[in-house]
Write a protein that binds this DNA or RNA. Structure first.
Lengths: 226, 226
DNA sequence: TAGATTGTTAATCGATTAACAATC
DNA sequence: TAGATTGTTAATCGATTAACAATC
């Protein structure tokens, strides 16, 4: 059972397979070949077969993959077959937006607590869950099993609060703060750096414009509108 | 000036360099060597030098890199040295959270419009910007230059609205909907698939638990709490 | 000048794609 | 059985790391 190391690239692709298989299920597609799926997803069939075979032989020669079965199996691999209690730290706009995200519940991600440092928010509720003050966190974590902490605090508070989470036994952090957390080996961090994503978009847009400067009409400004 | 193709991996790393250089500037650090930066960022010095040299020789032998200069140059490469007018499509929780994100303004990402399909929201304002109905979008895009459209609609509306954006000349979409948009070559899409990010976290957590099942106490349940 | 550190070439490593034998 | 398609090995491609000459 010694799992051979699965590459990060493969893991990042798994949720996308899961999404496509879910869509196929909704369309009542029963089976699909790596070739047909590759056309839908715009990846190579070879990659699909390689990726899936990291986890086991889910297909059948001459038949392809059973959609429902593969969906279920990938779900298990991703751990969405069990319930993951979550808390949110930081009840600002983003924290509240995530709290209101019903889609997560469908996958077993269940919000069980919201915390903030701002006393103005104390007692307010988001989706039926009362916002608590941070000082109540250690007690809460002793009394409730929590798998995942969502960090939606401004970066000046984030590092300190991450430490508090770790000190109280949290093993997985979904980090939206614009910092890289420095955590022990047994704590898993998944970063969502929105401003970096936006800058990547900005780079690609700027690059596209740079490349097309001298083709977009010969009126002197080269098509560069700013 | 024919730019040799820069790999996607390099581009994804640029905003992170930019962030670290910004922090160094705040700490009044004047110069830094690839070696010192590599320790801070936990990447190899070799990678830093390779990455930067895709865009030009920003350093100096025996000295290192001037922080302010490098920060400015990477800013230009990323296109954050100019203003990018943006609109939001979808004034739900996430759309509003992004609208309230002051940090973006600092980098030249300026919100100029918010649109939704829900008539209940008509006339409401977010951060001083009135929510408009989608049917006003084509006129708005004719009258205003808009660089980037942020798509924060549920997936059943997203595809159709993306098409509307493209038909009206939008060239860059920051997509938060859980679908892959099918766009022409001259339209740039940057995806933020939150549920996929959360599932990656869930995979890593589950994997960690699977690996440690037989070490966490010999009481039979193997330390697996669910 | 001597020391430091870049820019860049070469070596290594890892990930993707191609090919095909196995098998349903 | 014949056809289809997987699972898997081998080949290719690309990205990262190491090494070092150039040079400040």
């Amino acid at each position: 059972m010694d799992a051979k190391e699965i590459s990060k690239a493969v893991i990042k692709r798994l949720p996308r397979y899961y999404r496509y298989l879910g869509e196929l299920m909704e369309e009542n597609v029963e089976r699909i070949s790596s070739n047909d799926l590759s056309k839908k997803m715009r990846v190579t069939a070879s990659q699909i077969r390689q990726d899936l075979n990291n986890f086991g032989g889910f297909g059948q020669q001459g038949y392809g993959y059973n959609v429902r079965y593969l969906y279920t199996e990938i779900g298990k691999i991703l751990g969405v077959d069990s319930v993951h209690p979550m808390i949110i730290l930081g009840a600002g706009n983003l924290g509240q937006a995530l709290a209101n995200y019903v889609d997560f519940e469908k996958r077993g991600f269940r919000l069980v607590g919201i915390f903030d440092v701002n006393p103005v928010l104390e007692g307010m509720a988001v989706r039926g869950i009362e916002i608590q003050m941070i000082h109540e966190l250690p007690f809460f974590l002793r009394e409730n099993q929590v798998d995942i902490a969502i960090l939606t605090l401004p970066k000046n508070r984030a590092r300190e609060m991450a430490q508090l989470l770790i000190d109280n036994g949290i093993k997985a952090i979904w980090n939206f703060a614009h910092i890289d957390l420095d955590t022990p080996d047994d704590v898993i961090v998944e970063n969502v750096h929105l401003s970096e994503s936006l800058m990547t978009l900005s780079y690609n847009l700027s690059q596209y414009r740079r490349e097309h400067v001298n083709r977009a009409g010969e009126d002197g400004d080269g098509g560069n509108r700013l």
